[in-house]
């Protein structure tokens, strides 16, 4: 079961947003396979601090795969080798003794590196601010059971709502497109009856904000594979459809 392995890490170190970065190599010996990937980095950092070196900056918070704070490019894969698993839930039993592991930050022009493995993901919040909400002021809501929602619609909306906003879809995309994130956010609301009044305005605004920051989808499907919540790219297709409809409807509404 539990065993100890020795690893060689090649980690991206970058002192600040505008500084040049480069790889540094660290030997990580005696790592238990029961450790999570981030705990392995914790151990490396403890050793670095002991030897007087600046610890590696990486971000994490809940460490149970739901807050979306963590995210590393591990051997060229967003969140590492295990499907449907965020970096914090990846455990060292996915690796073998003697492995070389390359660790890089998410890379996209709109995810500038802040330091080492930490990046700025505010562009994703900008997409949500553009229309990722239902405009209902506090207190104005009708009784929750006034609007029945077919279970199928609720379930599909939920699949989209499961997005944790980690940015792995952007990181994994060869175009640095944020289509899966934006589509999940759009479709979560577009699929629900409550989301209908703003459906077309929301779709247009969110898609166009996304396009300001991220690349264009060429349907590789890498995002779906990288997504720790396994959100399918079907949502992207539906958003593409909604977007063109939105362009037609919004014009009519504007007239």
């Amino acid at each position: 079961m539990s065993a100890e392995i020795n690893l060689t890490l090649k980690v991206w170190r970058q002192p600040g947003p505008s500084a040049e970065g480069s790889f540094s190599t660290y030997e990580a010996g005696g790592i238990s396979t029961d450790a999570s990937f981030l705990e392995m980095l914790d151990i490396v950092n403890e050793r670095l601090i002991e030897s007087g070196e600046d610890p590696i900056v990486f971000e994490s918070d809940c460490r149970e795969g739901v807050c979306g704070t963590c995210g590393l490019m591990i051997n060229g894969r967003a969140h590492g080798p295990q499907k449907g698993t965020a970096t914090c839930q990846l455990h060292m039993r996915s690796f073998s003794d003697g492995d070389h592991i390359t660790i890089e930050p998410w890379r996209a022009t709109s995810f500038p590196v802040l330091r080492d493995l930490a990046v700025d993901r505010r562009a994703m919040d900008a997409i949500v601010a553009a229309g990722g909400y239902i405009s209902v002021n506090t207190g104005a809501a009708p009784d929750a059971n006034l609007t029945p929602v077919p279970k199928e619609a609720a379930d599909t909306a939920f699949d989209a709502a499961a997005c944790i906003g980690c940015g792995a879809c952007v990181a994994a995309c060869p175009n640095s497109a944020a289509q899966l994130f934006a589509a999940a956010k759009v479709q979560h609301l577009n699929l629900l009856p409550q989301g209908q009044p703003q459906r077309w305005a929301r779709t247009e605004a969110m898609v166009e904000t996304m396009e300001a920051f991220f690349g264009s989808c060429t349907n590789h499907g890498e995002c779906e594979e990288a997504c720790p919540k396994e959100i399918p790219i079907d949502f992207i297709a539906w958003t593409n459809r909604d977007y063109i409809k939105a362009k037609v409807k919004n014009r009519k509404l504007a007239d």
């Binding site: 991206w12 490019m73 890379r107 060869p174 497109a177 920051f213 590789h220 890498e222 990288a226």
Partner: peptide, 23 residues
């Protein structure tokens, strides 16, 4: 647009879904 949005991974990517055709 995508070239402007994308940054190269110095360690390379390890594709899963992207096919030879799509790339």
């Amino acid at each position: 647009m995508s070239l402007a949005a994308d940054q190269r991974y110095r360690g390379g990517r390890n594709y899963i879904a992207a096919s030879f055709a799509s790339r």
